Computed example of a mutant assay.
Amino acid sequence: MFNLIKRDFILLKRQLLVFLLLILFFVLMGKHDPAFIFLLASIIIPVNTIAYDEKPETNILLNSLPYTRNEIIASRFLGAIVFIILATGVTSALMYIFNRPFSIPDIAIGSSIALLLLSLYLPMSYIIKPGYSSPFALVSFLVLAGIVPPIVSYFGERLTSLTDFLVNLPVSIFYTSALVLGIVFYGTSWGLTTFIYRRKAF
């Protein structure tokens, strides 16, 4: 299974420099929120690895290897976590080198949203017609980036009691709750994607 993750690194080795330059561009611009930069860095590589496997012949090849369908999906979800950790480390290093301020909450927010988006995208990538999942991911990302902040701001202004409750929560409880919720959501997506992939014909 871990050889499948290694395979993704090999397939993407020519694009890693492009990803690095893209993140560096956003870091040097200094106009974007650090959490957004961590989100972008965390999600771009997993989405590209999934794009490689959209072709039916690729899935036929994968299923001809000595791996079960459960292991193929597990490599997708575990690989996404590995890429997020590496992307977070590289982005943190770049922001430190170029004296761009960031904080642990920025990393936590960016990584959490990346996991949430991937939890939605991974099962959809096996439902949507091959060749359309990457455009779907791009459009969804842009739409969410445009509508989520205003929605959060709208409810934050009107649901003051809920906002006050969240603000007054101890930091440890807040992050622990977010982590547990993220694990539950990611685990549910993992199970759903496995269920879909087991029944998919190639």
Rank of each mutant, 00 (worst) to 15 (best):
F2Y: 14
N3G: 09
N3D: 07
K6W: 09
F9G: 04
L11N: 10
L12G: 06
K13Q: 12
Q15R: 09
L16E: 14
L17Y: 04
F19R: 05
F19A: 12
L21G: 06
I23N: 13
F25T: 11
F26G: 00
A35Y: 04
A41M: 07
S42D: 10
I43A: 08
P46F: 00
N48C: 06
N48Y: 15
D53K: 09
L61N: 08
L62H: 07
N63D: 15
P66I: 00
T68D: 00
R69M: 06
N70H: 03
E71F: 13
E71I: 06
I72P: 07
L78S: 05
L78H: 01
G79I: 01
I81G: 02
V82E: 05
V82T: 08
F83D: 03
I85Y: 11
T88V: 15
T88W: 06
A93V: 14
L94P: 00
I97M: 07
F98P: 03
F98V: 14
N99W: 11
R100L: 09
P105Q: 10
I107E: 09
I107K: 01
I109Q: 14
I109R: 14
S111A: 13
S112D: 03
L118Q: 13
L120N: 01
L122S: 02
M124L: 15
S125Q: 01
Y126R: 08
K129I: 06
K129S: 11
P130N: 10
G131Y: 07
L138E: 07
L142P: 02
A145T: 11
I147C: 09
P150K: 05
I151K: 12
S153L: 12
F155S: 06
G156Y: 11
G156C: 02
L159R: 04
S161K: 02
T163H: 06
D164I: 08
F165N: 04
F165G: 01
L166P: 08
I173C: 03
Y175T: 10
Y175M: 04
S177A: 15
V180E: 02
L181H: 01
G182C: 13
I183Q: 01
V184I: 13
F185Q: 00
Y186A: 00
T188M: 05
S189L: 00
W190K: 00
T193C: 06
R199T: 12
R199W: 11
